[in-house]
């Protein structure tokens, strides 16, 4: 039965890789700054999901901590960049 799960893990990894490729193309193509930030946001979430995928595939728990950290810092980065677009500065006095 593990063969089915193994196959599903590989399929999902391929899906996330393709999604990251789409986001990368949008990141390179733009055209506006908010498009690039949206693409970066998608990129980090799909990257975090593929790290979780590795955790399932290899049956190891340490990948969870990496995924949690990627989720935390990815949000901080995306929110800071979006705030900068909105106001021209990140932390207002």
């Amino acid at each position: 039965m593990n063969a089915v799960l193994d196959w599903a893990v590989h399929f999902a990894l391929a899906c996330f890789a393709a999604a990251m490729l789409c986001a990368l193309l949008r990141l390179l193509r733009g055209p506006s700054a908010q498009d690039r930030i949206l693409a970066l946001d998608t990129l980090y979430i799909n990257g975090m999901l593929s790290i979780l995928m590795l955790g399932i595939g290899l049956g190891s728990a340490i990948y969870f901590d990496i995924a949690l950290l990627v989720a935390l810092f990815g949000f901080v980065g995306s929110a800071a960049m979006a705030k900068f677009l909105l106001r021209g500065e990140v932390i207002e006095p």
Binding site: A8, F16, C22
Partner: peptide, 24 residues
């Protein structure tokens, strides 16, 4: 355990892929 997990993984992968495709 394995069959529901596999189904959820396939669904999650497809949803993310379609979402990123829309971005493009």
């Amino acid at each position: 355990i394995a069959l529901p997990a596999a189904a959820l993984l396939i669904a999650g992968g497809l949803l993310s892929l379609v979402g990123a495709l829309g971005l493009l």
